[in-house]
Write a protein that binds this DNA or RNA. Structure first.
Ligand SMILES: NC(=O)c1ccc[n+]([C@@H]2O[C@H](COP(=O)([O-])OP(=O)(O)OC[C@H]3O[C@@H](n4cnc5c(N)ncnc54)[C@H](O)[C@@H]3O)[C@@H](O)[C@H]2O)c1
Ligand SMILES: NC(=O)c1ccc[n+]([C@@H]2O[C@H](COP(=O)([O-])OP(=O)(O)OC[C@H]3O[C@@H](n4cnc5c(N)ncnc54)[C@H](O)[C@@H]3O)[C@@H](O)[C@H]2O)c1
Lengths: 220, 220
DNA sequence: CCCGGCTTGTGAATCCGTGCACAAGGGACC
DNA sequence: GGTCCCTTGTGCACGGATTCACAAGCCGGG
């Protein structure tokens, strides 16, 4: 389930805040979901709650981590040392959450060799060596859209089996490779869709009073 | 539907490549989804296809844009001018896709005043002025996790009605405000979940042959 | 003008995720 | 030891999304 990481995040926060026991109701509140859903999700891990009491936070964290495969670190390699690649590589939260940057590669000669967040940018030809020497399983694509498929192919050829793609391109990979895509523009467009629906709703209600006047006018 | 932006993206690419007509089958191929789903999604916009021929790319792009509310630009304001905020503000693809950066704000005095991607960083106290003078409807949160809720409150107070949150924190807002969250760690954890399942599967099959030996050992 | 082939649009069956409601069970207090 | 209260775990019903399959419809060629 895609909600487990969210639970993990908030449980970790609660644990740091000194909370040792928590009910499904409280988790639901913090995760902004239904309490029954929380219990269903957690029961999927096994019956680790105590009726009448709730869940032991520390134990639950461990169980979720086990389920997600977070019992050890997963090294990550970033392809593309541009704007985004640098932000990602320089972002400390990566390693803190169990995903240290094992390497970052690029094709551009002026990028190769520079130091980002303590990691040196290498040429993409070194990808296979990096992946295999560091036992990297996850690759992150931060190249321009047209290069994304090439990057994916290179990652797969190097032995990576999971890919996180930030480029606005749908990439394909052999069966057995996990791919996830994060597309900024898609997120914004979904928001604008809702904005537009709200604007339309306002307009329809106002229409009866003043036909022709638009709600939130978007004048230049 | 959350798939419309994906269709839009790939249709735009096809249009640029000179394709003027396209079938649901081809769209499905490019979007990596079922063809019937594509037709259902598109029929939701109205009956804009021609039986026996397919869809006219340009017209379809226009219809999807209309549905998504992309007939005009939506200005965006970024809260937090750190690592990520700077990458976002400096990213040209934002404006190209109809979401120009209308402003970027921060609390830190050493950030305020600097120029990023042609936009000057302003103090968060100016948020309301920026939002209202530029008619901004969408806010992007790029602050550290603990400050995310404050940022959201400030955005809502300033009049923003949609929020895209990059911080690993669940934020709450009044009813009627759209919120979307993009959490890097969650994406990586989902990938690691699949990795781990693959590793387990390998281990189970190997177990019969060599009990005790682990598949992809994560030593040190 | 008619016919055959191709693609859309959509009814219907199905599947999956969600949420309700409640029985089962554990703990604390008496 | 008993009882009461609180919370978990889950059977069940519901709704939306997905997929199949096919009739309807358009176009080009004969
Ligand atoms: N910058 C952002 O905030 C942001 C936000 C969302 C999405 N994106 C997406 O992320 C991707 C990268 O954005 P960016 O702003 O960092 O772009 P960028 O142009 O700054 O960086 C791209 C980097 O990729 C390298 N590159 C090009 N082809 C390559 C290849 N075949 N193999 C390896 N490296 C290659 C380039 O040398 C460059 O360094 C784009 O697809 C963009 O749409 C960026
Ligand atoms: N950098 C990345 O690649 C990356 C990737 C994924 C997620 N994130 C998330 O994005 C957020 C920002 O990451 P970052 O690397 O840019 O961090 P950062 O520390 O570089 O930048 C945070 C910025 O927010 C500002 N800030 C703090 N409190 C604020 C407030 N109340 N109002 C306005 N501004 C405030 C700070 O002054 C700072 O400039 C974090 O939550 C992080 O988890 C970052």
């Amino acid at each position: 389930m895609a909600r487990l990481p969210v639970y993990l995040q908030l449980l970790s926060e609660q644990f740091d805040a000194g909370v040792s026991n928590i009910s499904s109701e409280e988790i639901a509140e913090l995760a902004a979901v239904n309490a029954a859903k929380v219990r269903k999700d957690l029961s999927y891990l096994g019956s680790y709650g105590t009726r009448g009491v709730g869940y032991e936070v520390e134990f639950l964290i461990f169980q979720i981590k086990r389920e997600l495969g977070l019992t050890h670190d997963w090294h990550v390699v970033i392809v593309g040392a541009g704007n985004l690649g640098q932000a990602l590589a320089g972002y400390g939260g990566f390693g803190e959450r169990g995903f240290p940057v094992g390497g970052i590669v690029d094709v551009a000669d002026d990028k190769v060799g520079s130091l980002i967040g303590g990691v040196r940018v290498r040429h993409i030809d070194d990808l296979q060596h990096i992946v295999q020497s560091q036992n990297v399983a996850i690759g992150v694509i931060a190249t321009p859209g047209p290069a994304a498929q090439d990057a994916a192919d290179a990652l797969v050829a190097a032995g990576v089996t999971s890919i996180l793609n930030f480029a606005p391109t749908i990439i394909s990979a052999p069966h057995g490779i996990s791919i996830r895509k994060v597309d900024l523009a898609v997120e914004l467009q979904i928001l604008s869709y809702h904005e537009q629906r709200r604007a339309n709703a306002r307009q329809s209600t106002a229409l009866k009073a003043v036909p022709g006047a638009s709600g939130r006018g978007a004048s230049a």
